[in-house]
Amino acid sequence: MKSIEELKAIKAKVQAELNTRDAVGDADTRIVVGMATCGIAAGARPVLNAFLEEVKNRHLSGVKVTQTGCLGMCRLEPMVEVYVPGKDKVTYIKITPDAVKKIIAEHIVNGNVVSEYVIRNNN
């Protein structure tokens, strides 16, 4: 059973990480997942949580995973928008938890947009 002790240990660990990060002073990269009925029905919740998992496992400080409502193209959900400071916004469509791993590794970590999931004119 998970306990308060375990939560306290997490708190101490996170506090230490936050202190290090304040010293570095990174700007935030934002990953925004559409979480309206259309997104949820298409699988946005596991996608959001896959992003969270990757951010946690890779200790990506300076990356914030957030949610929004309907992004307007329900048939292309789950949709994800990535905002890297100083770069154009990138909109990804039909994202799966496997695609999340790729986006984190190639786009967020290495700075290369994953073109196979980027929205196009003919989508």
């Binding site: 998970k2 308060i4 375990e6 306290k8 708190k11 660990k13 996170v14 949580n49 969270l52 946690k56």
Partner: peptide, 27 residues
Amino acid sequence: IKDVLGEDVPIDNPEVIDFIKNTINEN
């Protein structure tokens, strides 16, 4: 959860969210 975390650690920290998900499902 917020009582334990206090002011310094936000509840939406990935580690904390992971703890919350697991604790709910385990219970």
